[in-house]
Design a protein around this nucleic acid. Structure first.
Lengths: 159, 159
DNA sequence: CTTTTAATGATAATGGTTATCATTAAGATA
DNA sequence: TATCTTAATGATAACCATTATCATTAAAAG
């Protein structure tokens, strides 16, 4: 366990051993705002820590997700992506997804009303369906600027 | 193309040939409220149409999704699921997902406010990010009644 | 009925993720 | 600090949903 045990306290009570891969993967995720896949994380870390294997990347991401430190995004492009879940409310955000090129835009404007409504809805749903709600997932699907422009050119040529 | 061409008109302009697999798969989906995977659809149809192959099931589901007749649900359990997208506004719904057992609850109560807010948010996001929004996806994650009760028993035994 | 070719389906290939298991090293103990 | 216990790791193989390939079939038109 070389280096400062920056995240060690977050592991207390969850796992018995605080290891280099766990530190390093979590550290990478909290430094970036990108939505990284397991393979991307693997290759980022390969430069500084060539010893860390894909299996460990997957296992660690699963652990971090279960601990609530990381959000697993399943966007339907065949691979899962992961992002650090900040406890900072300022950084809470939802997603805008381009179904053409896969671009992901995080937006955090306009969330106040959204979150207010979500809280109300959660309460009603929990009562009605006897369901313990732990998280929510809101995303808008469509075409980003580039892809939209392109598809308009295409369709006017096609016809 | 045996049987009544029930869905034929929906295909007009989208594809050049209206075939048995397309009719049958769409028909199955519109008759059920379940969220079927490709494999499940394949085995449902195997009884009445043993000739239809998995490849065609996948291709047809992809087609139906692109046509907007069917929604593809990617829930992170390793397989996509599909549901008929009714044009009937009454049947529009969102999902409640149990992260333990995978149970899916459709809810359509409380949607008025939700949809109103979604429309407003979509407008603002489209303007701000130059993004053409075509669809949305709202889901609540948590534990269904059974899984919640079970996890409570577990945790009180564990400690 | 014949023709054209879009659509199909058997098969193989792909690729993300998980299981296996011998090895390693984190944390405890002396 | 050296030793011990075993949680965690990593190389490898296995798994499995999905996609690519390509010869065959059948929908629609003539």
């Amino acid at each position: 366990m070389p280096g400062p045990p920056k995240w060690r306290h977050r592991f207390q009570g969850h796992v018995s051993r605080w290891t280099v891969p766990r530190e390093v993967i979590l550290d990478l995720l909290c430094r970036t705002s990108k939505h990284l896949s397991a393979k991307e994380i693997y290759s980022y870390l390969y430069k500084s820590h060539p010893g860390i294997g894909m299996t460990t990347v997957y296992r660690t991401l699963d652990l971090l997700a279960r601990m609530g430190l990381v959000t697993k995004l399943v966007l339907g492009d065949g691979q899962s992506r992961y992002e650090f879940k900040s406890s900072d409310r300022e950084k809470h955000h939802h997603h805008l997804l381009c179904t053409k090129c896969g671009k992901i835009i995080d937006y955090s404007e306009f969330l106040d009303e959204e979150l207010e409504l979500i809280r109300k809805t959660e309460k009603k749903l929990e009562k009605k369906y006897n369901f313990k709600i732990l998280d929510h997932n809101i995303e808008f699907l469509g075409l980003c600027e580039k892809c939209y422009v392109f598809s308009e050119k295409r369709s006017s040529n096609d016809s």
